[in-house]
């Protein structure tokens, strides 16, 4: 049995993401750096509204990261990171190293709806000088450093695709969670918009 082949989790961007420098060759280097974070685990957990604080506590106990009850806040440094996506709803995310959904199912009370979205989301990381400008091309929310702060996230439309944009640092570094079926579209739109700044794909 060729299980080794089957094990290979295939990114939606496999064969699409071409490492190298694309677009304008700027003296100050490419304005955009783009990589895919894969494989990656994304699990949605959702509580009934009145149990949100209790769930937050349980989540902290289970993951060591305290999710914020404030909307649009992200918490944790990455293993895992917890992003608020709605009232009493979070995404728990981390680079794939365990069956995160199964782990959370075991660790959280059964009044919680747990949905594994690891394969449903493609995660792109954008960084570099012109990142906020590039995002402003395809998104109506305010990307300015004074408005979109580190450790906050936004669910929004980016080039017509539903996305969760997580600001990792003001530097800027952004993680973008897009629905898998839209991943190639989003990548192409981002690359197209980035060519004038120069885009380095790792």
């Amino acid at each position: 049995m060729a299980d080794a082949v089957i094990l290979a989790r295939r990114s939606a961007l496999a064969g699409i993401l071409q490492p190298g420098d694309h677009g304008a060759n700027r003296f100050d280097g490419p304005g955009i750096h783009l990589t895919e974070r894969t494989p990656f685990s994304v699990v949605q957990i959702e509580a009934r509204a009145d149990t949100a604080p209790a769930l937050a506590d349980a989540l902290e106990a289970a993951t060591g990261t305290a999710p914020s009850l404030t909307p649009n806040q992200s918490a944790g440094t990455g293993r895992p990171r917890i992003l608020g996506t709605g009232t009493g709803r979070w995404l728990v995310v981390e680079p794939e190293h365990r069956d995160l959904a199964a782990y959370l199912r075991g660790a959280l009370p059964d009044t919680v709806a747990i949905t594994d979205l690891s394969h449903a989301r493609t995660v792109l990381r954008l960084s570099g000088r012109d990142t906020r400008t590039l995002l402003a091309k395809g998104c109506a929310i305010d990307m300015h450093a004074s408005a979109f702060l580190a450790d906050t996230s936004r669910m929004t439309g980016l080039f017509h695709a539903a996305c969760l944009i997580d600001c990792r640092s003001a530097e800027p570094v952004f993680d973008i969670y897009v629905h898998r079926s839209y991943a190639v579209h989003l990548f192409e739109a981002l690359l197209d918009g980035a060519l004038e700044y120069g885009c380095r794909i790792a």
């Binding site: 909307p71 929004t156 439309g157």
Partner: peptide, 9 residues
């Protein structure tokens, strides 16, 4: 939840 957003969302 999300704050002020353009209606296209």
């Amino acid at each position: 939840y999300c704050g002020k957003r353009a209606h296209e969302e």
